[in-house]
Each structure stands twice: as C-alpha cells, then as structure tokens.
Design a binder for these strands. Structure first.
Lengths: 336, 336
DNA sequence: CCTTTGCCAGAATACGTATTCTCTCCACGT
DNA sequence: ACGTGGAGAGAATACGTATTCTGGCAAAGG
C-alpha cells in the first residue's frame, strides 16, 4: 500500500495541491470548509510527508552525521564509544533529528565518508569524535562553512567548535591522587601518539609530576593502542625494569585492566605494591578484581553539549562560545 | 562554497543538463568531444551529486534504518548492542549503505520512529533488534510490504525475515555443561518475561533439566531485567532459600556479574560451591574474578546475515530462506 | 457606478536528477 | 532524389513539497 501524496489528497478533496500543503503547514489563509474537507480526506486515507521531497525543497534533511575515528572493531570493544553513541542518539532524537553513524579508522575511507555524508547533503551537520592531531579534513570543512562539531580537540585553529573532557586536569588529578598515596615512580600507559586524548593526558601526568617535584622518566611512559593486550604487555615490560613503577595511570580502563592482569600475574599486591588507575569509569570497573579506580568522564554531558551545539549551528548559524570543557571526576576504588 | 549542480556544470560546458547526467552515468550514447568537455569542467570545478534529489528521483535513499528495542541507557551499558551496532555499521558500509540508528524502549516512541523512518521514506529498509513477543507493528510492516529484517524472533507468522541465535540450543548446552559438573539445583536468572531471548533461553534451560531427569522448580527461576543490579538481587534471594541453587545460568553477562557479586558476598567459593555462567561472552568476562564462563554469540555473523538479507530484500525483493539461525559456542572459564 | 482593497485558492515554479520525448542531421539504400 | 534509419543532443517531464505569482470575487470607499 503505497503512501498517498499531496497531489492525490488534493484530487480526492477536489482542491489544489497547494491548498493541501497549506492545510498541512497550518497556513491560516485557508477557508474553513476546504480545510475540513482536506483534513477529513487525510483522516480517512492517511498521509505521511515524503522526507526526501521535503529535504530537497527545504535544504534540510533533519539528520545529523556522526563519524567516529575508530575501526568498527575498536568501536565494538570500547564501552566509551557505545555510551557516547547511545547518548547522542538520545539527545538528537529528543531534538527531532535522526542520526547517521559511520566509523572508520583509515584516513582514506574517512575521507570518503565525509564526501558522502556532507557534500551529498545527506546530513545537516557532522559530529566528529576524536579526530587526530593531523587531520587534513578540518581546513576543508571550515572553508566550506559546513556546520560541524568536534568531540575532542583540534589545535591548528581555534575556529572550530568543540567539546572536550578536561583531559589535562583529569590526568593531573589522577596522578596527584597516586602521589598522595605515596607513589613516586608512576608509569603512564598510553594509546597512540598523535591522538589528542593521549597527548593531553600525558601533559596532565607530567604537570602533576613536576608540581610534586618528581623527575619524569621517559622509561615509564609506554605508547601503544587502546587495547587490553597493549596494557598487559606494556605493564609486563615496565614491571621487569630494574626499578619498576609502583603505580600506573592508564589512558583507558581497558588498558588499565590489561595492566592489572600483568600486575596480578607477577603476584604483586594491588594496591599495596602496585596501584592502578584507569580512565572512563567503564561499567566493568566495578566487576574486576580489585575494583578499578578510574576517572569518570561525563559522557552524557559531552553528548548533550555536542548535539545542542551542532543543532544551534545548523539552525541559527551562530554560536558565541566555541570551546566547551567538561570536567571529570575521580572515582576511587580498591585499586589505588 | 556551495556545491555545483548538473545545471551549472551544463552551462559551463555549454551542453544541456541531460547530457551532463548522461556523462555522469556513463551513458555510451554521447559524443566523445562533449563528454571530454563535460569531464574537464567537472574536473576543474568539482561536482558531487545531491543525494536528496537522487533519492527523490530514484526512490532509493541508500540508507538502512536500525531500531533497537532498548532504552538509550540500556544501550549504553550493554556491550552486546554496541558490538552489534558496530558490526552492522561495518557491513552496511561495505555494501555502500549508510546507517540511521534509533533506539527506544517505550512502545509509543518506537511507533513514532517507525513512522518517521519508514513511511517518510527516509530509509530503504529496516533492521529491528529484538522486538518483543507482542509487537503490534509487525503486521503493519508486513502488510505494507516494506523490506525489514529481524534480529531476534517473531512467532505469530513465519512470513518475517529474521536472524537469531540458537538461544534454545545454547541455553541447553550451558545447562548441560553445569549438569556435567554435577550440579542439580540450577537457577535461571532471566530478563523480562515476554522478551524472546529470555523465553527461548528459559526453554533451553528446561529442556536440559528434563533430559537429565531433573525436576524443574519455578522457585529457581527469577525474571527481571538486564541489569547487574537485578542479577545481584535475584541471586541474593536465591541463595537465602532453604535449599539454595549450586549453579546459576544468567540470561546475560551483566546479570551474571551481579549474581557473581552476590555469591562472593556470601563467601561461597566459585565454582566449587556455586557455579556461574553467563551469555554473550562480553569482553569483561576475562577481567572479572573468577573469569566468567559464557556462551559466545557470533555477533558479527548476526550482523552480516541481517545486513545482507535486508539489502537483498531491497534490491531484489525476493529471498528464499526466511529464517536463519546462528549457532553459539560455550566458552569455559573458571566460574564453572 | 467604478475603482481600490483584501481574501482566498488555483496555477506556476523551484529544488536537482534521471529518463523519455522530440528534433535535427547525416548516411545509406532503392 | 527521396524515404528510411539511426545516432546524438536538447527539450520536456516526473519525483513530492513549499512558496510565489496571479486572478477572481466581494466588500468597501469615492
């Protein structure tokens, strides 16, 4: 049963298509009798507007694009992204927008996705999650004046609208927390170099060390990826150093869990001999043994701000504040 | 810098818009000289087709809809759904489709989403994840002949295309596994009644008991939701029975983790005194203490089959096999 | 009585693409 | 020489909606 069009409604009501459109849009300049005639026909036969035609005409699609800079496999594993996506779906939905999601790690396919979503006018705006420090698309997006919002950071210009965690402050807080627990050799197990989150947390870590007068050692910093496996291997290596760390700040809970595994495998007591703290306060932090201290990121706030910001950009084309920072919170559990 | 249209390209090339369209679509009936002229103009100024206009014209949007029957909050928490969504994004992308995701638990808003996505022709087809046993929209979708695929099951008619885990078989396998470990009082901590997954797993559980000649007891079955909290509370209650269970099959890893917490809180040894097994083989199964046995669901296979099936339905309107069953696999760890 | 004003609704048009229709031009066969 | 056929390209149209343009009609005003 194909959907009726305004034209068919018009014929059935014996009015013009324009009148049907006016009735539907609540235009006051339409005679009450005709209005009733049209409404009763619609009531009887049903009518749903064609979104494609509407968006061709109105230049609006009512859809936001979400591009996550991770491979689908990483996406599947990391609860942070699923929570973020879920929250964005929620807020976009509340504001009457749909959401088109894509994920891609390879630069090339990301490029294609941008073209696809944006230039083809499939979406009204874009939310980009954690682009990397050298991201070649940003200048083009800016130049084209296309509405987009970052979750994360972009350094080269401050013309970009973005929301970010206070990663530097949070990492500093976490490190200071470890220092207060009398740890002086503190390791940082990170994700890849060049990813803002990792670099920022590294900075916060360094700041805390410096403020406490601890000499930072590059031996205690391990760059890698966001996997449990990396956490395990990096921590294993660190623990076999002649002068091993007594505490570790992980860039991510998944990485922290891997580190935890390495520590337990060597039968070091947690937190007495080695303290571990992660990032994101993932649900599973409560379930691991011992429960993992972590930095809680306010995912819903990130999603909320990013979505609102983007929609304001789309609908009004102007927003005063460009950068938003969402504070994080230390969640202390038994691992520290 | 607004995107150029075929019309503008046509003017610049001094040909008609129809010719530009023909060149772009590779129509052979166009003079080589004109073709070159058009191509060089496009090369110089750039051209990206307008997806809205194309879909209005072609009746295809190149987008699939995904509707998950869970609240965004549950979505955020449960790694099963994030993995599923990620996999569907991946396969849809590979097939050249975009993905529009929505989630809603309330029946009413689900209704609205169906209307929105489907009747407005925003998507070419729909993937519905785990609808409930009494789902009032299925008949309407069928009647309208709209392409859609279920991940899960729908009983009232077998005219529906669907992919599902072998939930009955898997729950039977899990329960038999517990029986082999010499457990005779086995509890089943479930999600809500009326949700197919829960009902099917319940059936498998009962089958295993019956085959082993164990009298099933409704005291040992706890219906609830998919939360860790429910697992904890239900298991606490079960353990304080005069004749408590020595093993528990949980409908979900999250629920299993809650049950595990209840067991450990009472200082019962796992798996010696109480064995626990979950469902989904979530990443965190490895990290909890003790590592949680679970039934691994082949999420990527589910996603792959559902996506392929839907795309075939959209593009060819006919598929032979209607129901697909994906086998599950027991993953034995220390909790059993 | 004629013009102005205002209301209301149909006609026309635009959005951008894909396809059909139509016309011109040229080569070929009788 | 004239009709036939076919190639190739522009003109026209459709997809469905929203808006502007236009015109008819009646009431109001001179």
């Amino acid at each position: 049963m194909p959907e009726l069009t305004q034209n068919q409604i018009a014929k059935l009501s014996q009015v013009s298509q324009a009148t049907v459109s006016r009735v539907l849009r609540g235009d006051p300049r339409v005679n009450e009798e005709l209005r009733q005639r049209v409404l009763s026909v619609i009531e009887k036969h049903g009518y749903v507007p064609d979104a494609r035609a509407q968006s061709l005409r109105s230049q609006r699609t009512g859809t936001l694009g979400l591009v996550v800079h991770r491979s689908p496999k990483q996406l599947a594993r990391d609860p942070f992204f699923s929570a973020l996506i879920a929250a964005i779906i929620e807020f976009a939905g509340k504001a009457g927008y749909h959401l088109c999601v894509d994920a891609a790690r390879a630069v090339q396919s990301r490029q294609a996705i941008y073209e696809e979503l944006l230039r083809t006018r499939r979406v009204d705006g874009l939310i980009l999650v954690e682009p990397q420090t050298q991201d070649e698309r940003m200048p083009r997006l800016l130049e084209e004046g296309f509405p987009f919002v970052l979750i994360g950071r972009y350094e080269p210009t401050d013309a970009v609208y973005s929301v970010d965690n206070d990663n530097i402050g949070a990492a500093r807080t976490a490190t200071e927390h470890l220092i207060r627990k009398a740890h002086y050799r503190i390791a940082y197990v990170s994700g890849p170099r060049g990813v803002f989150v990792c670099e920022d947390r590294y900075q916060g870590y360094r700041q805390a060390l410096e403020r406490a007068g601890i000499e930072p050692s590059s031996d205690l910093v391990a760059w890698g990826d966001f996997s449990e496996e990396h956490g395990y291997r990096a921590m294993s290596r660190l623990l076999s150093l002649p002068n091993p760390p007594t505490a570790v700040l992980a860039v991510d809970d998944l990485v922290a869990v891997g580190a935890l595994r390495a520590v337990k495998e060597r039968c070091r007591a947690v937190p007495q001999q080695v303290a571990v703290i992660g990032f994101n306060d993932s649900p599973f932090c409560n379930y691991v043994e011992p429960p993992l201290s972590s930095i809680a990121v306010d995912i819903r706030a990130l999603a909320q701000i990013a979505t609102d910001l983007l929609i304001r950009l789309i609908e009004e084309r102007e927003v005063h504040q460009r950068r938003y920072i969402v504070p994080c919170q230390l969640v202390e559990r038994s691992s520290t």
